[in-house]
Amino acid sequence: MRLETESRLCSGCKVCLTICALSHFRENNPKKGALRVESKFPTPGVFQVHVCNQCGACAAVCPVEAIREQGGVFLLDRETCVSCMACVEECPFGVLIVHPSEPVPIKCDNCGECVRYCPREAILDGEGSVKRMGR
């Protein structure tokens, strides 16, 4: 699976953020979701969704090799991470998320829950294997 976006379909509901945080942290806190929904209002009146496409730029700059690739997915090892935040700076999409109650950045693990539950199909699997529920 590879996350892609169709931002013109996004309505800004933030279901993706809530399900992401609830799935990974067992917390009802969309501020811990590993993606971003940018609202551009009042003009031009559009949303832009930013997701991790597993490009690996974060891993390349990590000084302690805390971000490692497994089967095409870059996973952050919380034990190894030293919270230098170099990956946060480097991420081209701004989707390594910093939260005040988390010691390390929050990174997408490509689980696909946002694809399954985005009501608008604004987040897609570019490889087509994961679809919205009911599709």
């Binding site: 279901v15 399900i19 609830l22 067992r26 009802n28 806190n29 005040p100 009911g134």
Partner: peptide, 21 residues
């Protein structure tokens, strides 16, 4: 930035998913 306390996070996730579906 805080979480809303949940009585049963797993059940909330499961029922919430069912409701959206």
């Amino acid at each position: 930035t805080k979480a809303i306390p949940l009585a049963d996070p797993a059940e909330t996730l499961e029922v919430g998913k069912q409701m959206f579906a």
